[in-house]
């Protein structure tokens, strides 16, 4: 069933409303939707913001959306033993993502502060010194 296919639209809508969000247990798809929204918000934030720190926040959101997916795929709560869960690997990768995000934020912040020291602004549109 392809959700984008207009022929299947009624079925997709019906299946969406057939799921009672309050009484059914959470599935992996729930988490994937949250991850998708966080990821998209992050991408839009990265493209729209002109403040360098705003771009950095967008990156954090993107990484977080990815983390939500990793945790969802590795969760025994959501998948149990029977389906193809990626097990502990997802949690380990999420952990590494968090650590590397910390490192990335530290470096990006240092670069931003350096830029601010040299140019007295944090508007990345003005970071065009190398433009020919």
């Amino acid at each position: 069933m392809n959700p984008l296919n207009p022929m299947h639209a009624p079925t997709v809508l019906a299946s969406l409303f057939a799921v009672n969000l309050l009484s059914d247990p959470v599935s992996v798809t729930h988490y994937l939707v949250v991850g998708a929204i966080l990821f998209t918000a992050g991408i839009v934030c990265m493209t729209v913001k002109r403040n360098a720190l705003g771009v950095l926040m967008g990156i954090e959101l993107v990484l977080n959306g990815a983390n939500v997916n990793f945790v969802a795929f590795s969760s025994q709560y959501l998948q149990g033993e029977q389906t193809a869960s990626i097990g502990l690997d997802g949690q380990a990768i999420a952990l590494f993502v968090i650590l590397l995000a910390a490192a990335e934020a530290a470096v990006a912040l240092a670069i931003t502060l350096n830029f601010y020291n040299n140019h007295s602004t944090v508007d990345i549109d003005q970071a065009d010194d190398l433009k020919g």
């Binding site: 392809n2 959700p3 984008l4 997709v12 059914d24 247990p25 959470v26 599935s27 992996v28 798809t29 994937l32 939707v33 991850g35 998708a36 929204i37 990821f39 998209t40 918000a41 991408i43 839009v44 493209t47 969760s75 025994q76 709560y77 959501l78 998948q79 149990g80 389906t83 193809a84």
Partner: peptide, 27 residues
Amino acid sequence: VGAALLVVLLQAAFSVEAWRRPGVGEV
């Protein structure tokens, strides 16, 4: 661009039958 991306991601999220199976909720 964001809306297009969101649609693609949501389609991927709903595309696999096993992912939509309700979780067990207890470990």
